[in-house]
Every structure is written in structure tokens, then in C-alpha cells.
């Protein structure tokens, strides 16, 4: 299993029956097609759709029906449409059970950075800042190391923050961590063949292994 596949397979277990779930752009989008088949889960797209369905067939293609990643999608039976203010009322108002977002850096304190690299990348935060401050639970999924092999799980984030102390759970290709406030980051699971020694070596942030 590739590192990304391992992350996606583990992240899918976070989605339980009856949940309203928002999936972020990038890595989390890969969860959507599987999750949209589940009749007991409704996926929210912050551009104004509750009930994202699978990608359309050529015949179903509709320029007026896209997800927040601007991909063409379908809507499930029972879906609803709304404007952006109502969409973020759902998000900020605590009505969305789970947000799964991608990350550039996560710190031991549960801080998340995922929207900007000063001087290099100007994309913007989109809905990420609202999601991490409003969803009942925030799960971040990302590869453990960047392309230079450096830990993205940091003592402190070096990039501009999306939210401070907002991450409840982090899933990487090596492990699953929970954040319990006061900078306490706890190892929940080792994934694949990862050993605890290997994880400590590859993780800049200090963590507690119970």
C-alpha cells in the first residue's frame, strides 16, 4: 500500500454512521468517492451542497454542480443546496460533525498550517480557517515528511497558521496522534510496519506513547 493509500484507508475509519462530514481539497478529496456511496453519511461541500454524490457520467455532467475543489460532482437523493453564508453557518455553528483537512505542518500543540508559504505560494485559506474553528471534530491527514524528508509534524509550526490548537487527530502514513491540549500529543496507533523507534526518529514534535 502506498503512503497515500494507507492514509486514506485509515482516514475512512474516522467517518461513522449518521455523520455530516466536510472533506477538504487535496488528499481528503480522495475519500469522497468511497464516502459518497454510504447512505448513512452526508458530505457537505462549502460552496453550497449537502449530499455530495459520486462523480457524474459524461451524460450527467453539469457546470452548475461542483464541489469545493471545483470538480464536477452529482448530488445524492435528499441533497440540499444553499448559499455560502448558510453553508458557513452550518460549519461555524457547530452543525458539521467532522472536517477532514490536508496539512502542510501540524505542531505538538495541535496547531495547523495549510494555506500559505510566504514569498512562494499565494493561494489563500478558502474555508479552512472556518472549518477548523467550527466543526465538532477536526482530523488532519498528511504525509509525515515533506519531499526533502523533513518532519511535517513540528515542535512549532514555521508557516502561517490556519488555526491554533484546532487539530483533534492527525493521521499520517506512519501513525495516528491525538491532541489533548496543553501541548500534549499522544500516539494512538502505528500504521503499516512503522516501529516506535522509527517514528521518534522521523517526528520533530515530542509525543507521548502510552
Amino acid at each position: 500500500m502506498s503512503p497515500r493509500d494507507r492514509i486514506i484507508a485509515r482516514a475512512a475509519l474516522e467517518i461513522s454512521d449518521g455523520m455530516y462530514v466536510n472533506l477538504g481539497i487535496g488528499l481528503p478529496t480522495l475519500l469522497a468517492n468511497a464516502a459518497s456511496d454510504r447512505s448513512d453519511v452526508l458530505l457537505q461541500s462549502e460552496n453550497g451542497l449537502l449530499g455530495i454524490g459520486p462523480y457524474p457520467t459524461e451524460a450527467e455532467l453539469d457546470a452548475d454542480l461542483i464541489n469545493a475543489g471545483k470538480e464536477t460532482v452529482t448530488a445524492v437523493a435528499g441533497a440540499s443546496y444553499f448559499d455560502s453564508a448558510e453553508s458557513f453557518a452550518m460549519i461555524r455553528g457547530g452543525h458539521i460533525d467532522l472536517a477532514i483537512l490536508g496539512g502542510m505542518e501540524v505542531s505538538a500543540n495541535g496547531d495547523l498550517a495549510n494555506w500559505m508559504i510566504p514569498g512562494k505560494m499565494v493561494k489563500g485559506m478558502g474555508g479552512a480557517m472556518d472549518l477548523v474553528s467550527g466543526a465538532k471534530r477536526t482530523v488532519v491527514i498528511m504525509e509525515h515528511a515533506n519531499k526533502h524528508g523533513e518532519s511535517k509534524v513540528k515542535r512549532e509550526c514555521t508557516l502561517p497558521l490556519t488555526g491554533r490548537g484546532v487539530v483533534d487527530r492527525l493521521i499520517t502514513d506512519l501513525a495516528v496522534f491525538d491532541f489533548r491540549g496543553q501541548g500534549e500529543m499522544v500516539l494512538v496507533e502505528l500504521l503499516g510496519d512503522t516501529t516506535l523507534d522509527e517514528l521518534r526518529e522521523k517526528t520533530e514534535a515530542p509525543f507521548i506513547a502510552l
Binding site: Y55, P56, T57, A63, I66, E71, T72
Partner: peptide
């Protein structure tokens, strides 16, 4: 034109 930015489809 109603241009589609990311055309994603499933093949039946």
C-alpha cells in the same frame, strides 16, 4: 460558456 474548471467523470 459555463466553463467547467475540473471535469471529473466516472465511466460506467
Amino acid at each position: 460558456e459555463k466553463r467547467i474548471e475540473r471535469r471529473t467523470v466516472t465511466t460506467v
